[in-house]
Simulated scan of single mutants.
Amino acid sequence: MTLVLFAANRDKWREYEASLKNALTQEGVVAQILHLDDAPPPGSVDWIVYAPNSTLKDFTPYTALKGVLNLWAGVEGIEGNRTLTAPLTRMVDGDLTQGMVEWVTGHVLRHHLGMDAQIANPECRWDPVPPPLARDRPVAILGLGALGGACGRALSALGFPVTGWSRSEKAIPGIRSVTGEDGLAAALAAAEIVVVLVPHTRSTEGLIDAARLAQMRRGAVLLNPARGAVIDDDALLDALDRGHLAHATLDTFRTEPLPEGHRFWTHPRITVTPHIASVTRPASAACVIAANIARGERGEPLLHLVDRSEALG
């Protein structure tokens, strides 16, 4: 029998237990699933379902481990762990992707259409100036992984000219793909709305700093549903205070929950959303995890493997 260890907090266990058991049964995997607190012998564990805020940090005792399956799309909390030698997978899930597409599309349209001026109009001002059509509002997406690619396709389908920047060139219909420093500079300079969807790695820490904010168009809008650490907070505040950027809509932060009293809460050109752009939903995520475990038990390659070379150096 396959032993699966659920290494996340008890609240997550209550959310996932039934869904995981059902999904594994549907995949034909005969498994016992135990929570980390149940303390099964580490050497008997085959698979670990993991949340980055888990108390499990030392994987050395798990000598028979076949893989660790991350519950979230972000893996920065585990990918650099040198005690983990088994394969690591990230969460790539249709519902998680759809949530990100809806958040990004909604906030791009909000800024494109100038909705804030109509929603908050205390002077009852009649100002019938139409926005441009989507085809005249260039958008840049930084990061063309599963989430960035899906968001880019959705925006392109609405008519926005979309430029996507990533480490390697991607062939995605409707998206102009660029790479490298020159590609990033060109994407930032051309866009009126920039969406940050890169993962948090050593190379993306502080990616959006003062120099890159200066490369953006005056009056541009920045959306960050990726990770808070990819943006230099002080540089962003300075760009907004000076009026170089018109607005920033932020869903992720260096410290979460965002501390009371942080300038982001009250800045007139910042919108804070509480890390809700894309969340893992138990029913669909359990199916992804179970399908990967089934693949591993059949000796097939795991899906959504994380390349840890950059994190481990």
Rank of each mutant, 00 (worst) to 15 (best):
A187L: 13
L197D: 06
V230S: 08
K170R: 15
E192H: 12
S166C: 07
A229G: 12
I193Q: 02
V221F: 01
L240P: 02
P161R: 10
E205K: 14
I193G: 01
D232N: 08
T252K: 10
L197M: 14
A214E: 12
I193K: 00
A235P: 07
P199V: 13
L237K: 01
L197S: 11
T249C: 09
N224T: 09
T201K: 09
V230F: 11
L197V: 08
P173Q: 08
R242V: 02
A210C: 04
H200W: 14
G164S: 11
T252A: 15
R227Q: 10
R217F: 07
E181K: 12
D238T: 08
T249N: 06
L188G: 06
T163H: 02
A154N: 04
D233V: 00
A226P: 04
D234E: 15
H244Q: 09
A171F: 10
A214C: 06
G149H: 05
L188R: 04
T252M: 09
W165P: 00
L155Y: 13
S168K: 15
H247G: 03
R176C: 11
G228R: 01
W165D: 01
T163L: 00
T201R: 13
C151Y: 14
G180C: 09
C151I: 11
S168E: 13
L158H: 10
A185Q: 14
R202M: 07
V195S: 07
A171T: 15
D232M: 04
E192F: 00
I175K: 08
E169C: 11
G206C: 07
L240C: 03
R242P: 00
H200M: 12
A211H: 15
L155P: 08
S203G: 05
A210V: 10
G180I: 03
W165S: 02
A210S: 14
S166Q: 06
A211E: 15
T252F: 06
A186I: 07
S168F: 12
R227H: 12
S156W: 02
V230D: 10
L147D: 00
A248V: 01
V162N: 06
A226R: 07
V194C: 08
S156I: 03
P199Q: 13
V196D: 05
L184P: 09
Q215W: 01
A171W: 12
S156F: 02
G228N: 05
I172K: 06
A229I: 01
E181C: 05
L184H: 05
R167T: 10
H247T: 00
G148L: 11
A214K: 08
L207I: 08
C151E: 14
A157H: 12
A186P: 09
D234R: 15
L207G: 07
G148S: 10
A185W: 02
A214R: 06
G243M: 03
D232G: 03
L197T: 02
T204G: 07
A189F: 04
V195D: 07
